[in-house]
Amino acid sequence: MSMFVSLTINGLAMGMVYALLAMGLVLLVRAVGSLNFAQGDFLMMGAYVSFGYIYMLKMPEIIGVILSVITYAAIGAAFMVSFYWPVRKAKWSQAIMVCTLAASMIFKDAANLIFGTTTKAPSAIMPGSLKIAGLSLQYQYLIIIGVCFFVILGVFTLFEKLYFGRMMEAASQNKYAAELIGIPTILTMAATYMISMTIAGIGGYLVAPIFLVETTLTKLQLRAFAGVVVGGFGSLKGAIYGCILIGLIESYSTYVITTYKDLVVFGALLLTLVIRPQGFFGESIAEKA
């Protein structure tokens, strides 16, 4: 029983981190109509930036986190200006996606150049474990679950419940019509990039003590992709549920198969595509104008 609880907490925590990545992915697909293959790099940069402030510049953790969040937003805006804006009117519709692939390469090399190739090991936000009745739960995983819950709730509320979110949604669905009724689409677009980078960056900060700070962090985006497909492409709610499901499948699979657990995770992805291509919790993505 205690192992089941341990694996569940672990899977839930990782699933929620994947959900942060996946939500940003869905938001950007809605906004620009193209997959962002640098989404994992957003998470990686989040880890590097917070490590830089807290461990290299030796700032107090709370100050480092606040500055990190501001930096994440700035990186999101810079990303839009550098890798989306120049190609937004390209005749080849996949140009934006190819640009994100190039950005991914650039970010990894830039991280190695700026921070060095040595693996960096930040301490857990709260070291130690909660021990109850023979059960040992690391505080770090509990903190991940708590922080991710509030971030997911915040983003979900913003986009699904608040007027500003609806403005962004409107701008992404029909840019021309949105501009006609006075919605500043360039600002809503920039806000989407900033939010996408910020939530991924927070994910990077949270997983850094577990996964360490290195460029391989970008690989987490594959699981976010899987979660988005399993949940239902285009749906924020679907992305969240799908990613949590992927996290749990991944964690439980270690009980049966450790070395090839990716086989189980991506097997679930393929199975979903075969039996329910629209995903389990999905709604069809709105067509871009």
Partner: peptide, 9 residues
């Protein structure tokens, strides 16, 4: 990178 499930086992 995530070894907590293995440690639990």
């Amino acid at each position: 990178k995530n070894y907590a499930p293995y440690a639990a086992q």
